[in-house]
């Protein structure tokens, strides 16, 4: 870890990170604010969803029902929007933090200072992790505040499960970020890194979606990290949180470590 580099990278990226974080926070506050209005008619909405093809409801995690606020949010927000936001953050930032600097040549300036490649890459990995942590932290905080402001004690909201949901979401993107970082670490070309890591991330997402929509394609879900993340089931309490979290953490750490090690050994066209 190199402190001046970390500070500089955070300075450059903080604005973008906070844009995503506050965007996410406002969205979730909005959802919570909306909930009391529809809470009375959850039965009707549940019926509506049941009337849809089963696969669609499953794919977007709508089947968890709207009987509690966290179930509503998990379906509406954690099933799709948040996943898209964090996927974009992972793909974009990991490319900017490694491949772009190599592609543009400015990586040379980091490596001519008395530091090692391992430290530079580790610092960049930490910047990405900090970004995910900030976005998820602000989102969680907004959720908890929203509960206090808009829901009070009238409506059901299981804060424990909500925090679990956020933890798994963070760890999922820690793992995805690890993979995109790995790709970015071995690419000399910014566009190539962006293309490959984008294809992998959104490919994962698509495989998960297809697997959920059709039982015949269920097997596809073994090929994607996103199957570790099932927001609907988490809020119902039907997920082995520790096990899932450990797997995601392990995959993430491994991917970052491999990325850093490959970067340390490779030839750089600087």
């Amino acid at each position: 870890m190199n402190l001046p580099l970390y500070k500089e990278m955070m300075r450059v990226n903080l604005k973008g990170i906070m844009n995503y974080a506050f965007g996410s926070a406002f969205y979730i506050l909005f959802m919570i604010w909306l909930y009391p209005g529809i809470a009375g008619s959850t039965q009707a909405i549940d019926d509506l969803i049941k009337a849809m093809p089963e696969g669609v409801g499953k794919a977007f995690g709508l089947n968890s029902g709207f009987t509690s606020a966290e179930a509503f949010i998990s379906g509406e927000y954690y099933g799709l929007i948040l996943v898209l936001i964090l996927s974009i953050v992972c793909v974009q930032m990991s490319t900017q933090l490694m491949a772009r600097l190599v592609d543009r040549g400015s990586m040379a300036y980091l490596l001519i200072a008395p530091t090692t490649r391992r430290k530079v890459a580790t610092t960049q990995a930490l910047v990405l992790t900090t970004a995910l942590l900030l976005i998820m932290g602000v989102t969680t905080l907004a959720g908890l505040l929203g509960k206090a402001w808009f829901l009070g004690s009238e409506f059901e909201f299981n804060s424990g499960r909500f925090v679990q949901l956020n933890t798994v979401a963070f760890l999922l993107f820690f793992a995805v970020g690890g993979l995109t970082f790995l790709i970015s670490s071995v690419c000399n070309d910014e566009k190539k890194a962006l293309g490959i890591s984008g294809a992998i991330t959104f490919g994962f997402f698509t495989l998960d979606l297809l697997g959920k929509i059709s039982d015949k394609l269920e097997g596809l879900r073994y090929l994607t990290l996103f199957s570790f993340y099932q927001p609907g089931k988490i809020v119902q309490g039907n997920v082995e949180i520790v096990q899932v979290s450990s797997w995601l953490l392990l995959i993430g750490i491994l991917a970052f470590a491999i990325g850093i090690e490959l970067f340390r050994r490779r030839d750089l066209p600087l």
Binding site: E8, V12, G105, A108, L110, A113
Partner: peptide, 27 residues
């Protein structure tokens, strides 16, 4: 070592002095 690359590419969004300050920090 001091090094002047053949093609100079600094970081985005910096002024000359902020780049030099950053490099002083790295050094």
């Amino acid at each position: 070592i001091g090094y002047l690359p053949g093609e100079i590419n600094f970081f985005d969004g910096m002024t000359g002095i902020s780049f030099l300050k950053f490099m002083s920090g790295m050094q």
